[in-house]
């Protein structure tokens, strides 16, 4: 157990020194690397690996899905859905999951399929006329809390839900996942600067820093080194984590929960994580042949 804790701490320290996408990632408290057992960690890993494979497998059925962005989100989604998201009869007492970067829908679907919310057979009908799963999330799909797809809208909506829950004196929380390219949208500024946000302790935002947007690398289009400082100065509790390392993600969420303040976690991730033909590049897709090779070797 001690050895395991040490490993996690080392990882966190190592991570804290990395300079990702031009952002100096802030160091994280060692003491926070606590509440996950090895057993649970392994379970999350297994879920994520299956979901990752299933996203890549979806390439056989539709070659236009955003694989790169999806693979960037797998571990964060897995952690939220399998460890933190609480379900309740009332929509005001459960936790909402908003994929503001809606193009990562395949990752959401794959994780929800692992959870049993979506039938696995539906995954193979993604974007088909006779399937349920749309190219971007729609609320008629089980497990989807907001119809997204056009960037920059998830946080405004999430803040509305979180405030509505608070006004009703209920316990639900709201998780919002955004991308770094998405931060280009003016509406993001409109939303996180709103005074109401500062009074909420039931909203948790992830911003994935994978360094790429549709046409290229984030730094050459709109450098974002200022992001964390700006969110912090706007009144947000800002944390960071390695978005592919469960211990790091969990540590950050635990820290967020202690803070009792609106929190944003800057998660360093890789576009196309684990799928070599497109990993850490602007490319979203690869051939079914590449997918086949990956699945055989995996």
């Amino acid at each position: 157990m001690l050895k395991w804790l040490l490993t996690i701490s080392e990882k966190l320290i190592k991570h804290s020194q990395r300079n990702i996408a031009g952002c100096l990632v802030e160091p994280m408290e060692r003491a926070d690397a606590k509440p996950i057992s090895l057993e649970e960690l392994n379970k999350l890993r297994e879920v994520a690996e299956r979901a990752r494979k299933n996203v890549i497998r979806m390439l056989f059925y539709d070659q236009s899905i955003h694989v790169g962005s999806s693979l960037s989100s797998i571990e964060i989604l897995t952690t939220l859905v399998f460890k933190y998201q609480r379900m309740a009869e009332s929509h005001l007492d459960r936790d909402w999951l908003i994929l503001s970067k809606g193009h990562a829908a395949p990752a959401l679907y794959a994780v929800l399929a692992e959870k049993g919310v979506i039938k696995e057979s539906e995954l193979w009908k993604i974007q088909s006329i006779d399937g349920v799963l749309q190219g971007h999330p729609e609320t008629f799909i089980p497990g989807v809390d907001m119809s997204t797809g056009s960037l920059g809208q998830g946080l405004s909506f999430g803040l509305g839900v979180a405030k509505g829950i608070k006004m009703s004196g209920r316990n639900g929380r709201v998780f919002v996942i955004m991308g770094d390219g998405e931060q280009d949208e003016g509406q993001v500024w409109e939303s996180f600067t709103q005074k109401v946000a500062r009074e909420l302790d039931n909203i948790l935002v992830f911003i994935e820093l994978n360094g790429f947007q549709l046409d290229g690398d984030v730094e050459s289009i709109k450098p974002k080194a200022f992001l964390q400082a700006v969110w912090r100065d706007a009144g947000w509790n800002t944390l960071s984590c390695d978005g592919h390392d469960f211990a790091s993600i969990v540590a950050a969420i635990e820290e967020a929960q202690k803070a009792r303040a609106p929190t944003v976690i800057f998660a360093s991730t890789l576009r196309g994580k684990g799928f070599k033909p497109i990993e850490n590049s602007k490319y979203q897709r690869s051939s079914p042949d590449d997918a086949r090779k990956f699945l055989i070797n995996a």
Binding site: H91, L92, D145, M146, Q153, S156, F157, G158, L159, G160, V161, A162, K163, G164, I165, M167, S168, Q187, S191, Q194, V196
Partner: peptide
């Protein structure tokens, strides 16, 4: 969108 979220809640 903030109004939309409040309506959803």
């Amino acid at each position: 969108d903030f109004a939309a979220g409040l309506a959803a809640a």
